[in-house]
Structures are given as structure tokens and as C-alpha cells.
């Protein structure tokens, strides 16, 4: 579904992505793991077209995403730090987003919106929201349009335990619908029962890309956190 071929991106001297080649298929749920500054967010942003790679191509449903924008209809994206127009209320934000993406959807998936109890604070302006509430808004927006692909960048950072559980439950539910889910997170215990594949990145390169089962077998550990710790120690 998403295929990256030798994607390279430099920021000045820093090589953020170094000839990354990945293939992601429908129904997979993939976790991108790696130390800070290893290029995870840059990679996600290049899939979304926010960062333009210096070389290499990214194909979405076999179509090059360069100068293409329509493919984003099928993506729900939750950013690491949600940036929203400061003066808008939550209600205005949702109304605008629905208006912008109107032509494509009849039914909205407002489950998260309800579970996070956002309707009760609809009148609040975005700038008055706490970091966690903002994350909740980001998450609800990502799931709102029932997209085929979910890209979640540090989804649980800043959420309270209850909200984290709600979000994880929702991700699991969407996974069973056969959606492609791409998650980055440093809280590996959150990912354990969600992901099926693991991509480990370091210094802009992919160190390995294998299924969770395979990784556990290779390292002889029982859970993801220990397995990754094992890998990091030995690399």
C-alpha cells in the first residue's frame, strides 16, 4: 500500500533519512522504533508530503505521492505535537475539518470524540487546552474520517492512563477492520499487544524490519520492550 524506495533527506549536514526502503501492506500494524532523532518523524512526514525527500520515491497505492494530494483522503494523521489555529474553538475546528473533507464521507467515526468527552468542552479555544486535551483532539480528528491508513506519531505521549487505554482499545478495534496502522512510540509496553511488525531505525537507516514474532524469537525475549533493549545493547 505504501512503498518507499531509497528515500533520502538531508537537513543541512544531517542525514535524516538515508536510502530508506520500506513496504507496508493493508492490514499490517507497524511500529516505528528508534532512538530520538533517528528519523522516525521525518519518515512519517515524508509519507504525508510535509517533508519533500531529496531523492527516492514514495508510492501510495502504486502512485507517486509527489505533487499528489488526493491520497491523503485515506490517511488519518495524529501528529506528535498537535498544532492548531490558536483562536479557534474545538467546535469550529471540527466543523472546518468536516467542511474541508466533506465530499468524501457520509459517516463520521465519532466514537473517540464521545469517549474522550470532547463534546462537553466544544466551546473552548484551542490555545486554552492542556497538552493532554490537545492530544485527545488530535486523536479524535485522526479517526474521524474513518481512514484506511492511520499514522500515529507518539499517540500516547501526554495522555492520562485512562485515555491511553481508550486510545489503545480504539487502535485495536481499527486493526481488526484490516486497516494499515503505523505507530511510533517510546512507550514500548503500549505497543506490545497492538503491533504485528517492527521497524527499527537508527541514524536515518533501517536496522531491521521484521514481524514481532520473529523479533521475539531472534532475541529470545518475551516482550517488545525487552527485545528492543536487547537489540540496542548489542548494536
Amino acid at each position: 500500500m505504501i512503498r518507499a524506495e531509497k528515500v533520502t533527506k538531508r537537513f543541512g549536514k544531517l542525514i535524516a533519512l538515508d536510502k530508506i526502503s520500506v513496504e507496508c501492506e493493508q492490514g499490517q500494524s507497524i511500529s516505528l522504533i528508534g532512538p530520538n532523532g533517528s528519523g522516525k518523524t521525518t519518515f512519517i512526514k515524508s509519507i504525508l508530503g510535509m517533508v519533500v525527500p531529496d531523492s527516492g520515491t514514495i508510492l501510495f497505492d502504486n502512485k507517486d505521492i509527489r505533487n499528489n494530494w488526493n491520497y491523503r483522503r485515506t490517511i488519518g494523521y495524529m501528529p506528535q505535537i498537535g498544532q492548531y489555529p490558536q483562536n479557534m474553538t474545538i467546535a469550529q475546528l471540527f466543523r472546518m475539518m468536516k467542511d474541508i473533507r466533506k465530499s468524501e464521507h457520509i459517516s463520521y467515526d465519532e466514537e473517540l470524540l464521545e469517549l474522550f468527552e470532547i463534546p462537553e468542552i466544544m466551546g473552548k479555544r484551542m490555545r486554552t487546552l492542556s497538552g493532554g486535551t490537545r492530544q485527545k483532539v488530535s486523536a479524535s480528528l485522526a479517526f474521524l474520517f474513518n481512514p484506511d491508513v492511520l499514522i500515529l506519531d507518539e499517540p500516547t505521549a501526554g495522555l492520562d492512563p485512562l485515555a491511553t487505554e481508550i486510545l489503545k482499545e480504539k487502535i485495536r478495534k481499527e486493526k481488526t477492520k484490516g486497516k494499515l496502522i503505523l505507530i511510533t512510540s517510546h512507550i514500548l509496553s503500549d505497543l506490545d499487544d497492538i503491533v504485528s511488525e517492527v521497524i527499527y531505525m537508527q541514524d536515518g537507516m533501517i536496522q531491521f524490519n521484521k514481524s514481532l514474532k520473529q523479533l521475539k524469537a531472534d532475541t529470545g525475549e518475551e516482550n517488545l520492550a525487552k527485545a528492543i533493549a536487547n537489540v540496542m545493547r548489542n548494536s
Partner: peptide, 16 residues
């Protein structure tokens, strides 16, 4: 001041 607004919009199905 609309950096956030622009960032939000580029992730949506809208031409740059």
C-alpha cells in the same frame, strides 16, 4: 502566525 493552520492543512487532502 498561521504556521499551525498551514501545518494542519498540509496533512489534509488539499493541494499545497
Amino acid at each position: 502566525n498561521s504556521t499551525e493552520f498551514i501545518e494542519l492543512l498540509v496533512t489534509q487532502p488539499i493541494k499545497r
